[in-house]
Each structure stands twice: as structure tokens, then as C-alpha cells.
Computed example of a mutant assay.
Amino acid sequence: MFNDVLEKEREKKLTDGGLDINRLVNISLVHREGNAVIRRHLESLPLQSFDSILILADESVEDSAIQADFRSLATLLLIRDIQAKRLPFRDTQVHRGSFSQGSWIGDMQQASDKSVIISEILDPRTKNLLSMSKISDYVLSNELVSMALAMVAEDRQINDVLEELFAEEGNEMHIRHADLYLREGEELSFYEILLRARQRREIVIGYRFANAERAVINPPAKSERRRWSLKDVFVVIAEKDE
């Protein structure tokens, strides 16, 4: 955890928020102090060794969504640039996007293959910049809250579903291998896969083909039969495997 809040004050905020550090399992919390928009502070971190990084909006400027997003974007670009300079260059013949190798954003895209960065943004207009850069994914937190409120306002029973999904225990989203629901080359409709998943007390909400980059959520042609591969995966709502 890296920010400019003093460690003692930070621990107090975490404790007041309900976190019991002694109960953490399979995770260690390491505190580092510094300003996330100052390059020399970020360079003190072993950023090239991180598999994933989460950039949260600065609560000290949350009253201005644009300013908070600017700080998040500045941190993102600094991290990617530091990673690009520390990671060994890979001479690849095919490069993602329309940016050439050797360009600053091309180097950052190469660094993005090494580690995943998820940025929290507050203003919907900022997501266009992140989508164009292809060097980070994002969570639009304000929009998520707004959508949840709209769904509950439309149907109060949705609140029970949201509480179940966002609770620490119970059902949550998982990625399941196709061999749990079908055989290699079997022709099935999405509805038929739904029925098979129900026998496992699971709900299939989407799928991703083996040769596709993105998953299809709530597919429109659910009754259309297609040939599936065991390399395909499904997005399901289910309880955690024991």
C-alpha cells in the first residue's frame, strides 16, 4: 500500500474501517509512504516485479472528480513508464494497436503485458482516454453505484441479488472451463448449457471462445446451436469451490 498518509494514521483508518490485519490469509500488507504523482517516489518501488496494481482515487480531492482522475492518470502513466524502462525489450513482430514499436505508448503497451493495472476513475469522460491508450483497465466507481441504485429503485428485490454478489461469502462470479458442461465438439445452444449449469447450482451469464479476446455476456442468440470446444470458458455465478 503506497500513499502519502502516515503509516500510523493509515493503520488507524484501516482498523476503523473494519480491517483486522491479523486475520489476513495468504496476503501480507506492506506499507510504503510517498506521493504517487512524484516519479522519484514511485521509483523506490519494485514496480517491474508486480503482477497487478490497483490505483484508487485520491480521497483528498474526491470532491473534484476531474482532479482525482488526473492524479490517477498521472500515476498510471508514471508507473507504466518506469516499468517500460526497467523491463527487457522484447522484439515482437506483431504489436497490439496502431502504435509502433519504440514509441512511448508502444513501450507502455509492452509493459502492460507483464502486469495488470486497474485504475479507479470517477468521471465517465475519463474512460475514453483509458480505452484509447490500451495500457490499463479501469473501474468507473461512481457509475457502478449509480447503476446499482437505479436497479434497486426499479425493483427492490434486486437488492438481495446485489448483497449476495458483493458479500464476502456466498455466490460470486467465476470463470469455469467448458468440460464441466459439455464434451469436445458438442453442439448445444446457450439455453442447454444454462440447464446443465443449473444441475451444478450455477448460473451461466456468458462465455468466451478460445480464440476470442473478450467474453460475451448475456448473448442475444441463446437458442442458436453451435459447436463448442473444451478450450472455451464460461462466466458463471456460483459459490466458491471448496
Rank of each mutant, 00 (worst) to 15 (best):
L129W: 07
E33Q: 10
E242D: 12
I121G: 01
P124G: 12
M173N: 07
L140K: 03
L165M: 06
V233C: 08
F234C: 04
N159M: 10
S223P: 05
R39P: 00
F190E: 01
A111R: 02
S28H: 11
L45T: 12
L195S: 15
S49Y: 08
H174N: 07
I158G: 00
Q67S: 13
R226P: 06
G185D: 12
V139R: 05
E184W: 03
N22M: 06
A221D: 15
M1W: 06
E43N: 12
V216M: 12
L47Y: 02
D91H: 08
A57L: 02
S229G: 03
I205D: 00
F2G: 02
S189Q: 09
G206Y: 04
L182G: 03
T92G: 08
L129S: 11
S141I: 15
L56K: 04
S133N: 03
V25C: 05
L162P: 02
A148S: 13
K231W: 03
I105L: 09
G106A: 08
F209W: 07
N171I: 10
R90T: 14
A111C: 06
H177M: 10
D232P: 02
S223F: 14
D155G: 07
K85A: 08
N171C: 09
V37R: 05
L162G: 05
S119L: 05
M108C: 08
V216L: 09
Q199S: 13
I203Q: 09
S112I: 03
S60W: 05
L180I: 12
E154L: 09
L77I: 09
I38R: 13
L194M: 13
L195D: 15
R80F: 01
N22K: 15
E7I: 15
D137P: 00
S146L: 09
A36W: 00
F209N: 10
L230P: 02
S119N: 04
R23F: 04
I135Y: 01
E184H: 12
M147S: 12
E202I: 14
N142F: 05
K134H: 09
P219S: 11
L130G: 04
L182P: 06
G206A: 08
E213L: 12
V94Y: 11
N26T: 14
K222I: 15
K231R: 12
E239H: 09
T126A: 08
F2L: 04
I53Y: 04
D69A: 03
L54F: 11
R96V: 09
L47A: 03
R200E: 15
